[in-house]
Amino acid sequence: MSNQPGILIVEDDFSDADLIYSAIRDQKIRDQIHTVNSGEDALNFLRRAGPYRDAPRVNLVLLDLNLPEMDGFAVLKEIRKDPDLTRLPVIVLSGSERDEDKLASYDLQANCIIRKPADGGQFIRAVQMIETFWFKIVRLPPVP
C-alpha cells in the first residue's frame, strides 16, 4: 500500500503553501514536495517545459482554485486533456464556498475537493488526513 511520493503544490498564497509543507509529517514525503505559484508554472512543471526541463515527476497534485491569470479550473482542464497527464490525481484545495465551484471541479474530474479550513489548526489536520489517506491507504499511479 505504500507509494513512492511526489507532490506538486500549486498555490499562490505563500503562507498556505508553507503551512501545507510543514503539516506533512513523513520526512520522505516532505522531501518530495515541489511548489509553484501559478497555473502556467504548474503546467510547465508537469510537462517539463521551459525553465522546468529537469523537473521531477510527481504523482499527486494539490491545486488551489484561485490563482492569478490561469486559474485552477483551467489547469485542471489542461491536465485532463493531456494524454500524458490525464491520470494524475488532483486534489482541489479551495477557499471558495460556492457550490458551483465544487461541482465544476468534480465535473472536470478533480479527484476530490477540500475546502480550506479558515482555522490554521484545522487546516493542518486536513493536510495530515490527505497525507494519511493518499499515501497510506490509496494506491497512487507510479511516478513515471
Binding site: 490525464t86 494524475l88 490525481p89 479527484n111 476530490c112 493518499w134 491507504i137 490509496v138 494506491r139
Partner: peptide
C-alpha cells in the same frame, strides 16, 4: 486513474 476513478485502493 485514466478512466477517472477518484481513487484506487487495493
Amino acid at each position: 486513474y485514466e478512466l477517472h476513478a477518484n481513487c484506487f485502493i487495493s
